[in-house]
Structures are given as C-alpha cells and as structure tokens.
Amino acid sequence: MTSPLEQKKIKIAGPSVVTANRTWDGIVVYRTAAKSWSADLSEAAIVRNSDEAKALLAESVADDVGAIGPYIAPVQVGADGKIEPGNLREQIRRTGVTIGQSAQV
C-alpha cells in the first residue's frame, strides 16, 4: 500500500483504473471511458498497459476542475467483469473506513 502520492513512474502489473477526488466535495471518483468521472467503480475505464494508463492519466489530470489528485490504482476484474479494488487502500476508499460506529454517515 505504498502511497500513490509517491507514484513516480507509471508501471502497471495488471488491470488498473484512474481514481481521484471530486473537486467540489472531495468524494472518491473514477475516470470513465466517456471522459467523465463516476463515483461508481463499475463505470471506471480499465487500462491494461502503461501506454493506456499514461493516456488515461493525462486526460484525467487535464480535467482539473472535475477532480483532483488523479492516480493509477490496481483493480481486479472478475470473470463476470465485476471490478473490485486491488488493494486495501483502494478497498477502504471504495467502501469506507473499517472502524465502526463513529465513521457512519
């Protein structure tokens, strides 16, 4: 779970998405194939190699008003096409904190 803030080189080992936080309210969002942002991971554009990742990230960075701090995050894609976060950090960003009562909405 090396912090993506330390992400210097784009090197991906498997299916990945670009994720960020929406500018006006900060919620977690994912870059879609339609060049927009969605709070739903299932709508994220999947990239599978460094060139695709670079291109998606560049496009995401350019949309500075929409979302901030974009980075590439690993995902797992099931046989049924279902997308799941690829590490604990991204799992927590998707499903929320793991600490119980005080974190609930």
Partner: peptide, 17 residues
Amino acid sequence: GLDYCSLANARSIPIAQ
C-alpha cells in the same frame, strides 16, 4: 491511519480499538 489518511501505509485506529 489508513482509514482516513492519504499518507498512511497501514491502519492505526482498528489496532487501538
């Protein structure tokens, strides 16, 4: 910790709990 913080590598609060 990792429940909130973008710099964290691991969770702190669940350990405390």
